[in-house]
Every structure is written in C-alpha cells, then in structure tokens.
Amino acid sequence: MINERNLPILATLLVFIMLYGFGMYQYQGFRDTLVFSNLLTDNAFLIITAIGMTFVILSGGIDLSVGSMIAFIGVLMAYLITNTGMHPLFAIGIALVVGVAFGAIMGVIIAFFEIQAFIVTLAGMFLFRGLAYLINLDAVPIDHPFIAGLYDIYVPLPGRGGLTFIAMAMLVLLALGILIARRTRFGMSVYALGGDSHSAALLGVPVKKTIIKIYALSGFYSAMSGVIFAIYTSSAYPLAAVGVELDAIAAVVIGGTLLTGGVGYVFGTFLGGMIQGIIQTLITFDGSLNSWWTKLAVGGLLLFFILLQKGIVVWVRKRSAA
C-alpha cells in the first residue's frame, strides 16, 4: 500500500537498490555475496546505534550521547576483562546494565525536569567520553579466547561471503527493534508521542514513563553497539566512535524517519545505515576518489531526504485542505 507515510521508506529502498545495482553493473567484484556480508559486518555497530536512535527520533527527541557511550562501554569492558580478569560474558552484562542505567537517568532528567533532550544528551556525550578517559588514556587490546571465539563464528553463504557473529547479532537486534516498534504498546506510545505529545497525554499515553524507556532503550542499543565494536576491533580506545551519533542520525533520516517524530520505520534505519556503507564501498572500489567523498554523498542524500519529507508534508496538507 503506497501512502504518504511509507513514501520516504520506499524512496530509501529505491536509493539502496539503485546504488547496489550501480555497483553490480560497474564492478565485477560487487556481484559477490562477500560485499553484502561485509556491509553487514562493517556497518553493524552503526546500524545498531541507529536503531536505538530511531526510537528517540520517532518520539521527537535526539540522543547525542551514543558515540561516547560506544567508546565508554568498550573501555569499561577492556578494563573488566583485562584488569579484573572477569569473564567477558559478565563484562558484557555489566556494560549493558551500565548503558541502560545511564540512558534511563538521562530519560528521567528529560521527562521530569522538562529539559530539552539535546542539552541533556550533550552533557551525557561529554560525560561518557570523560569517563572513558578516566578508566584508560590509550588504546588497549582486548585479548581473550572467548572474544576471539565470538569473532570467529561464521556461517558461510553461497559465493565467498558469510555471516559473522557481528552481522548476526545486528540482524537479531534489528528484528527485536522492529518488533518493539510495531508490536508493543511501548512502541505505539513512541509513535504517538512523536505525532502529538499533547494529544498523546490526553489519550492516556504515560508520557514520562515512555520517555524514560526510550532513552534507556537507546542506552541499551548504544551499549550493545559498544560491545559489538569492541569485538569487531578486538580493542578499546577512549577516542573511538567520535561523531558516530551524527552518522546514526543521518542513517535514521536517510531511512525515512521524520526528524520531527511520529513517522518512520526501524527497517528504514537499517537501509539508511547500509546506504552509507554502500557509498563507502563504491568509493573504495573506484580507488581514485578520496574517502571523504563518502561524507559528501551522505550529506547530499541527507539534504535530499529532508527536502523529500518536507515536500510530502506540504503535499499532504494541500490535499487535505482541498
């Protein structure tokens, strides 16, 4: 069913297919499943972060703390595993609890003190980066057989490609995100809050409780992303993932979610993250272009999607006025 609500995500899908099709047409190597599975693995931490961000943006908020959260969680994990000799599974558990708790605290401040999410999560961004430095100043390797074991899990696909543990974890978290967004009362409350928070309150949506859950969920996803990033790089570095919050926001918007909230899909965010990855891969395949061209293309796409959304809003208003 084509209506104005899923027009942006259809546009995203079209861009995704066109870019991928272009790559397959232009480069022999692009046709192999290896490219696709690498895209899944290499962009996993970005997409996971962006899934949490989708809930935040759907509700009409923003979360700038996610990039720092990734670095902080990585450093925390490295500390727990290397310095205290804790089993990585416990370390991951603690890291996730810490991520959720910090997210929930930011949510409480946003909901109860009615302070803009922008400023609260900006404070969170500085705080987590600072905490990461407090634990460790340099990059440290995470050297543990369990982590190495996770890294080596591999389900081969036809062709040269295959699903890594990281890719599979991302896909599971994606499915979980889609379920939460569309099949739970909390998910519908998020959409309602972003559509019209005043009406949502009158309709009986528990506004404050929902806001706290949203930032806790974003905390969970960014902490999860921190864990995945640590496994992906087998190391931890306080300066890791600088600016990832902005890449995540870009993935959400390119994925068709309205920045003002209320409209969008988690699956769109997945496509948005993948599109950023494809652009990077295309530039690598080309070989003659500087990698900064990625940023240029992402910037252009972002602008295109914002204009598209604005155009749809104007179009709907005109049509309902007629």
Binding site: L179, M188, S189, Y191, A192, D196, L203, G204, G262
Partner: peptide, 23 residues
C-alpha cells in the same frame, strides 16, 4: 485530540491494543 500521523486503527486502539503472545 488524536495523533494525526497514525492510522485510524492505531488511534482507535492506542493503549488498548489486544495482544497475542505478548505482542
């Protein structure tokens, strides 16, 4: 006082959705 960006069905059932297996 409804949510303009949600479907009629979503508006009518908001907070009163029936579930199967928790979903």
């Amino acid at each position: 006082n409804l949510i303009p960006t949600m479907s009629v069905m979503e508006n009518l059932t908001l907070q009163h959705q029936e579930k199967t297996f928790g979903l």
